[in-house]
């Protein structure tokens, strides 16, 4: 019996120690508190976003917390939003793992007068204050300008993408428009479906290069195919500098891609700015949580925030860009 009692005490102590040891002492802290909710918690991209959120909050004298599942479960995100709203945070920034699943929780938060916005991935059917993230058309346009600058009218482009996704459609539209405008002689030769799988990207891009040897640029419409596209250029012996080189335009800021750009393997990469997404999200939530003498027209009772999306922009990174080195150093959380 004595042992049973001891075991019970150990049970209680474990919770106390595990939770208490890492609990911030904000019991009597008057600072305003804001929450960020992500899916794939722990991913490098969202670590950057949270670092921006946290750093901006520190300049405003507020505190923050990061919530959300470590896997791709938007229902767990919805519950995290509900939880933060019930806790009484001053604002919530959420990236929607699934646009529709988050709608009810975002709207419930706003109904409870807690400002909620989306960043990186939107939930357009909800009444979120605004969306902070990359405007995909503009980002694609920037990539098109960079390719036009690199190869001009000689550019012959193959596109590796997943068909049917709005975000990628917008990127490709922006890319095509920029190319048409700045290099009218350039051509989009063909598109392949890499199914969002980097392993499938290699065979489909290899086949594309074999079928269309005139291609000298592979534009990756999303983050996954770059490694496979680069492997495809190696498969057909067109990865080395020279007149036959195929330039791969990646769409990622993963360290291996950045390293590849620095080594000259990739022609360039389209770098979104998750840190800026975090900074701007915090600023907008702060503004919404502090009404001035005139209420927001679209959200009475809240402070002023733009109702249109806020484009955090992209940077086209090429070899030697100092931003590559900065991005290769993970943020401190």
């Amino acid at each position: 019996m004595k042992t049973s009692r001891l075991a019970f005490v150990a049970l209680a102590a474990t919770i106390g120690l595990a939770v208490g040891a890492s609990a911030p002492s904000n019991a009597a802290d008057p600072k305003e508190h804001y929450g960020m909710v992500v899916f794939l918690k722990g991913s490098e991209f969202f670590n950057w976003a949270y670092a921006g959120f946290q750093d901006e909050a520190a300049t405003l004298g507020a505190t923050t917390e990061l919530q959300g599942p470590a896997d791709w479960d938007a229902s767990a995100e919805a519950r995290a939003v509900d939880q933060l709203v019930a806790k009484g945070v001053k604002g919530v920034a959420v990236t929607a793992g699934d646009a529709d699943t988050l709608t009810a929780s975002i709207d419930a938060g706003l109904k409870a007068k807690v400002p909620v916005l989306t960043f990186d991935s939107d939930s357009p059917k909800s009444h979120r204050l605004l969306f902070v993230g990359t405007n995909n058309y503009n980002a694609g346009y920037q990539a098109g300008l960079a390719v036009a600058k690199l190869l001009g009218d000689k550019a012959r482009v193959g596109i590796s993408r997943i068909p049917g996704l709005d975000s990628i459609n917008h990127r490709v539209a922006g890319f095509t428009d920029a190319l048409k405008k700045m290099a009218p002689g350039a051509q989009i030769v063909t598109e392949v479906n890499d199914e969002g799988d980097l392993q499938k990207a290699e065979p489909v891009n290899t086949a594309m290069l074999q079928a269309h040897p005139e291609i000298n640029v592979i534009f990756c419409g999303h983050g996954n195919p770059a490694t496979g596209a680069l492997a495809a250029t190696r498969n057909v012996g067109r990865d080395k500098d020279g007149p036959n080189k195929v330039y791969v335009v990646a769409w990622a800021i993963d360290v291996p891609i950045l390293q590849g750009v620095e080594n000259g393997d990739y022609g360039m990469t389209v770098a979104q700015n998750p840190y800026m997404m975090g900074v701007q999200s915090m600023l907008e939530l702060w503004s919404a949580a502090h009404p001035t003498q005139f209420d927001s027209m679209s959200n009475p009772g809240l402070g002023q925030v733009p109702t249109s999306d806020l484009d955090t922009g992209v940077k086209i990174l090429v070899k030697g860009d100092p931003a590559i080195k900065a991005l290769m150093t993970p943020p401190k959380l």
């Binding site: 896997d71 699934d98 009810a104």
Partner: peptide, 15 residues
């Protein structure tokens, strides 16, 4: 859950 979230998604209820 479909009624709670207003949507059905393949990744719901993971783990």
């Amino acid at each position: 859950a479909a009624a709670k979230y207003g949507a059905a998604h393949w990744a719901h209820g993971n783990l």
